[in-house]
Design a protein around this nucleic acid. Structure first.
Ligand SMILES: [Mn+2]
Ligand SMILES: [Mn+2]
Ligand SMILES: [Zn+2]
Ligand SMILES: [Zn+2]
Lengths: 147, 147
DNA sequence: TTGATCATGATAATCGTTATCATTTTCGGG
DNA sequence: CCCGAAAATGATAACGATTATCATGATCAA
């Protein structure tokens, strides 16, 4: 039952802060969970709009921010000026590799890199709290097509 | 004589594209080279303005973009919505570690990480063309001040 | 039921950046 | 030098993503 646990978490998160679960927040959470992609608020707004014409885009922005704080979503910044969100609950940390031609992207992890990042930070006197790593390249398919 | 070689490079870069070295471009390049910092266009604009009240900010934006293409500057995106530029000529690639409290930042490199990134990309069928890695943490000074 | 609180959607505002365009500067022949 | 094409500039408008504002509507607990 996808979404059951997540909805519970969200409801609790909201309650803890004196906020309410609403119809709109439910719709947005559902649509978000149903879509296994890195979604921009605009994209999600477009999806939901097809079901409910009355929803406002401000609410989508607001709710995605809330989902992030609740630990259900995670912000992803590919560096193209648009913020995207990915599932966070039950999805381990990972980094991304993005094709510069077709923008196809994959999720990758390398434990050795993670470990070395930790050490690197320590070496410079920092307590590491997080990191962003984006690899840019040309994917196999695009290389086949031309050079 | 800081700036001599860089100016030559810029002049040649411009000439190759049928563009001209101008007074403004010279001023901007000088101020950029004189400042050893990650500079936003606004900051640079502020600096130059103190010397020449007549300069336009559009010219600063335009020129920084040109300097990037000429290989003299490099864009840096700390993820706070402002694009910054750093020296590129004679400055090897490096990554950054940023304090989330005071925004102090350091330049760091780990050859083992660079190597592993290369392999990771290959493993997923990508030819790596570049990467962005930003480590976020709390610096020593900030940890001393409070927790 | 009823007021207090919270959420919503439309819209204005913000902010960094880019586009537009009239004006100025530059440059290479005459 | 002087000219006209080409390029550059600066003021300003426009842009796109996001956030703030605010009047209206929904929800809650007593
Ligand atoms: Mn992802
Ligand atoms: Mn740097
Ligand atoms: Zn591709
Ligand atoms: Zn600090």
């Amino acid at each position: 039952m996808t979404g059951k646990t997540e909805k519970d978490i969200f409801v609790r998160f909201l309650a803890d802060r004196g906020m309410r679960m609403t119809n709109q927040r439910g719709l947005i959470l559902d649509a978000f969970l149903r879509t296994e992609k890195h979604l921009s608020p605009e994209e999600l707004y477009g999806l939901i709009r097809r079901k409910d014409r009355s929803i406002g885009q401000a609410t989508v922005y607001r709710t995605l921010k809330l989902l992030s704080e609740a630990g259900l979503a995670r912000e992803v910044d590919f560096g193209d000026g648009v913020l995207r969100y990915e599932h966070s609950y039950g999805h381990e940390h990972h980094d991304h590799i993005i094709c510069e031609r077709c923008h196809r992207n994959m999720e990758v992890v390398d434990e050795r890199i993670e470990e070395l990042q930790e050490r690197l930070a320590k070496k410079y006197g920092f307590r590491l709290t997080g990191h962003k790593m984006y690899l840019y390249g040309i994917c196999r398919e695009c290389r086949k097509k031309q050079g």
